[in-house]
Design a protein around this nucleic acid. Structure first.
Lengths: 195, 195
DNA sequence: ATATTTACATACATACTGTATGTATGTTAA
DNA sequence: TTAACATACATACAGTATGTATGTAAATAT
């Protein structure tokens, strides 16, 4: 039985991967730890060895998802030197990542419900949300978004993007939906007074 | 035992009210039907007589909440003749309603997770969301929001408002938070090209 | 080489949902 | 007016999922 430390890390990652799939597919509530463990070729005992409880497992999954999405956003945004373009590229990357079935439900739907909004927000703050706020702050320092509160703006945009992603995911032509949403974002960012 | 039809209606409404409280306080997952039934002075048998299952009870609760919020939004919006003002008044009413602890979690957090986003969206579409879309359509017919897709815009604003409400609810000074958010909304709506 | 910790498995307790069935009361129609 | 039926519950039970306590073999530390 008992394996080496590396093997343990592998089962841990396997558990996260399998759990991610199950959470995305069935939702948090309907994902059974028994099934997850079985598909990872361990028993629930192993799962409870690596994670405190179901919440802990979900937290690990969400962290992994958010980190990956955050990296994609940052990477795409960095392809431009223009602040406004950076923001738009970042939003595009976020939307593209968020509509993926594996990410959608975990990030946007079950996340706040399972962990509570404040915890979810803290996690989000360590990833995509923090980039957004930084970017908006920079832009405001350049005179954009005149008197607006950056925090309020960041929340609004973040929520708007989330809901847009969910809408996009339900539409038959995702590409067209993306274009609609990005055109809207461009108008929004471009039209702001004090630009 | 057995009561009249009116008594039955009363227990039904009591169940919804008590359930609303429990769902808001503990969240859907941690609200026990046993406790809800007990506080309504019936057994779970009565609950299962009136509702198909826990989802059914939650659905009834959410419908009640959304309808009430929708009415408040519509009423406030109707206090002006100006399309833009109507929109802002409606948003203000929505935010005011959404930050209330009893409504927040049910509407904005657990709703999509418990019922699935599509079902939640359908429900939302019968209430606040439909008003928003109608309003935006009217405004676009007057030349506002030039080329933007009304659907995409409605989703974005709706999501933005939801997230803003959640942020506001966490802030110590809700009134100040409301002002920030409304100033932002006003700028957003006022600054749009094609106005 | 032995002790101890680690990485699991197994067995069990608990809690909650859902269902099946029972029962008393209201309702309706002959 | 009463018999037949429907309604509004209560009670008891089964199923399922989480979580916990304990056991065990292998790896690691001493």
């Amino acid at each position: 039985m008992r394996r080496t430390k590396e093997d343990a890390n592998e089962t841990l990652r396997t558990l996260i991967d399998v759990a991610k799939k199950h959470f995305a597919e069935h939702g948090y509530a309907n994902a059974a730890l028994e099934s997850i463990a079985a598909e990872a070729d361990v028993t629930r005992g192993a799962l409870y060895h690596h994670f405190r409880n179901k919440h802990g497992l979900f937290l690990a999954v969400l962290e992994s998802v958010q980190q990956e999405v955050g990296e994609r956003v940052e990477q795409e945004a960095s392809r431009s030197e223009d602040l406004r373009e950076q923001l738009l590229l970042g939003c595009h990357a976020f939307l593209a990542a968020a509509v993926e079935p594996d990410n959608k439900r975990i990030m946007l739907i079950d996340g706040p419900s399972v962990l509570g909004w404040d915890t979810w927000r803290m996690l989000d703050g360590k990833n995509s949300m923090s980039h957004l706020r930084e970017q908006l702050t920079l832009m405001q320092e350049q005179g954009m978004f005149a008197e607006a509160s950056v925090d309020a703006l960041a929340s609004f945009i973040s929520g708007g993007l989330n809901e847009s992603a969910l809408r996009m995911a339900e539409m038959p032509d995702t590409a067209a939906a993306m274009e609609q949403t990005m055109k809207l974002m461009a108008q929004l960012v471009g039209a702001w007074p004090g630009t």
